[in-house]
């Protein structure tokens, strides 16, 4: 199953896919995309790599810490849920938004984005963990 073309493709596509997934995630609030889709894409980048180089090799990657990312995702989701309770006058899971403006750009960030980022990490982590586990069985 290890072919050179796949290896080269996987190696070079990985960073692109990861960046693309982040982009898809960010634009999800206004365009198609979001945490699920971004997370799935990010996970797929690693899965592709594992398909090309084998799961042992893929596990050595710095990003291949699925359980960490699942935990991180839950943490972010929870923090964003609590933000409304702490900062805003709303309650649990109430959105908090803030806007920054500099040099003509305006950047709007809010707790829903943070929440979506949590979803992103959980989905990506779950995907990687599951596929890696199954692939290890293959050996």
């Amino acid at each position: 199953m290890e072919t050179e073309i796949l290896k080269i493709a996987a190696k070079h596509l990985k960073p692109f896919l990861l960046i693309l997934s982040l982009f898809v995630f960010y634009r999800g609030h206004n365009e198609p995309g979001g945490g699920f889709i971004g997370g799935l894409m990010a996970g797929m980048a690693l899965v592709l790599y594992a398909g090309a180089f084998g799961v042992e090799e893929a596990k050595k990657l710095r990003l291949a810490k699925p359980l960490f990312f699942i935990g991180l995702g839950f943490g972010l989701a929870l923090i964003s849920s609590l933000l409304g309770l702490l900062v805003g006058q709303g309650g649990f899971m109430t959105a908090v938004w803030n806007q920054w403006q500099f040099a003509g750009f305006s950047l709007k960030l809010g707790s829903p984005l943070l929440f979506d980022l949590g979803v992103y990490f959980v989905v990506a982590g779950m995907l990687v963990k599951v596929i890696f586990s199954v692939m290890e069985e293959d050996v």
Partner: peptide, 13 residues
């Protein structure tokens, strides 16, 4: 769909 994915993956395993 996403939950279905979780279910499908779990069932397969």
């Amino acid at each position: 769909i996403v939950i279905g994915f979780g279910l499908a993956a779990f069932s397969m395993v």
